[in-house]
């Protein structure tokens, strides 16, 4: 930043800080910042504004020293909304203060531009840090979901079960198919039961994915049974005109296992005595 301008801003530091601290509490919204104590709230605000003003001294537009502070804000759960509004307010106050007291610079576009650039850089940095942390969270959750999403469980010799829980989208369907096929080969399964008890909605797309998966299973040399068809699912399937005749379907996993045993020419017998 222009040394002259930074000098001017620095001269009015106290007045800017005071005004800002007066203005900022009105953005403290109902829900998000209520569980933070007043002392903590004020401390953080003060630290924030101090950090902001300390960046004035930077000659370049590199505000790397703001990063650790931002990370702390993210961890404390301060909403981005609040921070950006705080920054906007800060910019307004700075411009207002300077234009009032520095008559030389009264109409100076240069001053305005410098301040705009300065604040914009900081906004960018904050938004980047915040969205980075969100992306990270989403990524971790995606990984967790993926781990939970499609386990293939070998139940008895030649028979495996894949319980599906939750909505199925295209990406998950792909993952399901891969798991299903590699699992079939690994466990040398002859019959695979796909249990859709936990799938809330079966629309044409979900049905399409299931049909594709079972066709693929047939290609690698095993058979699919679709189990866990609840009454409402049966209704939607028929109403949508989806044809599931290519492979057997059963209402419960129990019936599915019985059919699977039959298909592999085995049965469960009770021991005598």
């Amino acid at each position: 930043m222009n040394a002259n301008i930074s000098h001017i801003i620095f001269k009015h530091k106290e007045s800017i800080i005071d005004q800002w601290l007066e203005e900022i509490p009105k953005f403290r919204t109902e829900d998000s910042l209520q569980n933070i104590t007043d002392a903590m709230y004020e401390n953080t605000n003060r630290e924030f504004v101090d950090k902001l003003l300390s960046t004035v001294k930077n000659q370049t537009n590199d505000h790397a020293d703001l990063v650790p502070f931002t990370e702390r804000l993210i961890q404390l759960g301060w909403p981005l909304n609040y921070i950006t509004r705080g920054l906007q307010e800060f910019r307004k106050i700075t411009v207002a203060t300077l234009s009032k007291s520095e008559t030389d610079y009264n109409d100076s576009i240069e001053l305005l531009q410098e301040i705009e650039n300065w604040i914009d850089e900081i906004v960018n940095l904050l938004v980047n840090e915040y969205s980075g942390s969100w992306e990270n969270t989403v990524f971790l959750q995606k990984m967790a979901l993926k781990e939970l999403s499609a386990p293939l469980i070998p139940v008895v010799d030649k028979i495996s079960v894949m319980p599906l829980i939750g909505t199925i989208d295209t990406e998950r369907a792909k993952h399901i198919m891969e798991n299903l096929l590699t699992g079939v080969i690994e466990h040398r399964a002859e019959v695979v039961l796909i249990d859709i008890t936990g799938v809330p909605v079966v629309d044409t797309m979900v049905a399409h994915h299931i049909i594709q998966a079972s066709e693929a299973v047939r290609l690698v040399g095993a058979k699919c049974i679709l189990v866990g068809i609840r009454p409402e699912i049966a209704q939607t399937i028929v109403n949508l005109g989806i044809n599931l005749n290519k492979f057997p379907t059963k209402s419960t996993l129990k019936k599915g296992i019985e059919t699977a045993l039959e298909m592999t020419k085995r049965q469960i017998v009770e021991m005598e005595g």
Binding site: M177, E178, L181, E190, E215, A216, V220
Partner: peptide, 22 residues
């Protein structure tokens, strides 16, 4: 193989009446 099966299905080739085995 699984990748082969997936490609076939993606291409819409079901090999419908062909018996298969592991």
């Amino acid at each position: 193989q699984p990748p082969v099966a997936i490609t076939l299905i993606d291409m819409g080739i079901m090999l419908e009446d062909v018996p298969t085995a592991l």
